[in-house]
Design a protein around this nucleic acid. Structure first.
Ligand code: FES
Ligand code: FES
Lengths: 158, 158
DNA sequence: GCCAATCTATACTTATTAGTCAAGATTACT
DNA sequence: AGTAATCTTGACTAATAAGTATAGATTGGC
């Protein structure tokens, strides 16, 4: 259960484009330098973001990347899904089936129930965050996090 | 952000031992067969659990593995930490440092703030679950999940 | 003492993810 | 048309995680 490099750099590249503003254009060399990754790797990641429909590319001179839609309509949960998949996918239990009672009889598995709970908790945060929310400084972001409703764990950040 | 094989199988082996009850003893071949993994792999995972202090081993004939402490004192969050590390470790941002404003000036990064929020959400679930909670069937476990306090995302499981 | 059942440790192989490279395609400008 | 700046694609290499193999150490029973 670790953040992948794709998720980390992909999200950062997207934030970088968000800072460039609506219609703002950044080239691969620019993004690459800003995020401290190689141009080739930035290109690879940006391709994933493009195929996910979050950014669009223009080729040729004066080309570059730009957000495909307004920052407030880009939900971070969807971005993370594209960059790194889900924490707990439904097929997971099929491919890791044990033999006897606990997990094969997959109609009845407490472990799976726990994984689902974790997935829901993650989704609860990531489905509420948009790229717009990330286009602010850390302090403002912390306020945003605390504003997630309910006396849930996020309050612990307080 | 995916569950690792270590986490999946490690937790299942632990649950299996939990079913064996306090003082219950299972050998590597038994666990291996029950969980559908090779004996060698089960051994590798059980070693991690032993070093984490969750199970203890007895060698020689009549040997095997047993829980190191009562199931209700084994917190799943700690188990997952040992098996697969944290989602977002503090050194993470050091090793993935970008160059300019967003992530190098790590005193001010909204992305990091989001990762922390996700980590807190995960911990909120996993720090409340003990091995005892997992020693019940899926339906009972779902009830347990719903009982996590607050109108938070876990309600979505309803 | 010997043997069989068991865990232990380390090294090895395979699969997946991370990251690089090189050739090609598109566009703007002259 | 020519050229330079740009994205696109697929193949390649490197690093890490997953899984296997093998030799060794411990224990109980005969
Ligand atoms: S069915 Fe997947 S962990 Fe039990
Ligand atoms: S400092 Fe780590 S994501 Fe920004």
């Amino acid at each position: 259960m670790k953040l992948s490099a794709n998720e980390e750099y992909g999200l950062r590249c997207l934030v970088r484009l968000g800072y460039a503003g609506e219609g703002g254009n950044l080239t691969i060399p620019e993004i690459s330098q800003a995020e401290g990754v190689s141009p080739a790797y930035a290109a690879k990641i940006l391709r994933v973001l493009r195929k996910g429909g979050f950014v669009k590319a223009a080729r040729g001179k004066e080309g570059g990347y730009t957000l495909a839609r307004p920052a407030e309509s880009i939900v971070i949960g969807e971005v993370i899904d594209v960059l790194g998949g889900r924490l707990f996918e439904s097929k997971f239990c099929d491919s890791h089936a044990g033999q006897v009672a606990i997990c094969t009889r997959s109609v009845d598995c407490s472990v799976r129930s726990l994984w689902r709970a974790v997935q829901v908790a993650v989704d609860h945060v990531l489905s509420k965050a948009t790229l717009r929310d990330l286009l602010q400084n850390e302090e403002e972001m912390n306020s945003w996090v605390r504003a997630i409703p309910g006396p849930n764990g996020l309050r612990l950040l307080q």
